[in-house]
Design a protein around this nucleic acid. Structure first.
Lengths: 196, 196
DNA sequence: TGCCCCAGTTAACAAAAGTTAATTTCGATT
DNA sequence: AATCGAAATTAACTTTTGTTAACTGGGGCA
């Protein structure tokens, strides 16, 4: 069951808003229940969707020239997910967004959300904190590619997000780290042997 | 010379604001002229600065465990530059921000800027567009690490930002691409030979 | 229970990148 | 014009990764 009171828990970042503010958003949302393999946003989609992940896990991926699926991003509960092709660049999504687990999304039309956010300046602080956090996370990921080698990136990931590493297939972890599944397997063996 | 009229040109993204809005910001800014090698933000700095680059080029770098300087980011004219350690994570900057050319910054105290931005909702659309653009650029960089190999990343860079590649030393370009200067040199040779 | 499928591991080889050091190139400076 | 110094290139060698394919080990399903 979903009501404005519950929503307040889900949208942690939305604290500081009045119940009326929250209800304005509440009117925009729909809950979507997904099975593993279901698609939230399909490549080519131009409509702007944004969703809060109440439960579960979403990956974005595309098919490269060689025909292989490459996973570029993982998002999980208490995070927002959207195609930045749609929302930032205003173009069709290059990625599919697929649920990897039974997943519950709280889904909104992005443009309608913008209208509500514009209606009350109180929303803007929330938006600011949200966008800054996304920037921080993304820059941190860039830094890890520049400052760390693949093995170090993997060690950092299992240190910082051990639950996520255990929840998804290794091949997705490998792609996220910018390496091949074969190479990740070798890295795991190297680590295991060095700890013997 | 710097006045509110000129400022309107510089802050392209600030179009849509009234002259009064712009003057409020104008009161916050100071112009800083830098020589190559001058530091805008020093590692360890906790004060939040943000600057618009009117002219020139800034790199952020740190010293890794082995004692080598690693360049993580380049910013140039018509872009903003700030330490995300300060602004996003509220912690001391891990990076130095150094001018690589004669550079002119229009510098602001970040917190004071926030106060002004909060004072008028009209600013918020500007901030939103600005933050979204930063997100888009950062995510694009992440994607390039996942979807492209070093050679492809280099080719993409010289295609998209040829001026920048020619303005800075190769070793900085190499770091930005996540490889060593030696490896970049080999990649350049491979490309040159394949075009013979 | 047996079979199949697929993820993960391992193997073998080629290609690329890291590392260190020598060499060259080029611009700045005296 | 000669010299110095830093950046870039090249070389030699090691390590790692990519690639392709074979092998292994469960989990799911008939």
């Amino acid at each position: 069951m979903l009501n404005a009171e519950k929503l307040k828990d889900y949208f942690r970042m939305f604290r500081g808003l009045s119940m009326t503010d929250l209800k304005n958003i509440y009117h925009l949302v729909s809950v979507r229940t997904m099975k593993p393999g279901d698609i939230f946003i399909r490549a080519g989609c131009e409509r702007k969707h944004i969703a809060y992940i109440r439960k579960g896990l979403i990956r974005s991926f595309l098919i490269n020239d060689k025909g292989d699926e490459i996973t570029t991003m993982l998002r999980w509960e208490d995070q927002f997910v959207a195609s930045h092709d749609n929302v930032v660049w205003n173009r069709p999504s290059r990625f599919d967004f697929e649920a990897l687990e039974p997943t519950e999304l709280i889904q909104m039309d992005y443009d309608k959300l913008q209208q509500v956010l514009r209606s009350n300046p109180a929303y803007e602080q929330v938006r600011k904190h949200f966008l800054l956090k996304v920037i921080g996370e993304s820059l941190e990921r860039v830094e890890s590619f520049i400052l760390l080698n693949p093995e170090e990136r993997y060690l950092k990931l299992i240190e910082q997000k051990p639950e996520i590493v255990n929840r998804v297939q290794d091949k997705y972890i490998a792609h996220i780290l910018g390496i091949t599944p074969v190479s990740l397997s070798r890295i795991r063996r190297r680590i295991a042997e060095s700890r013997k």
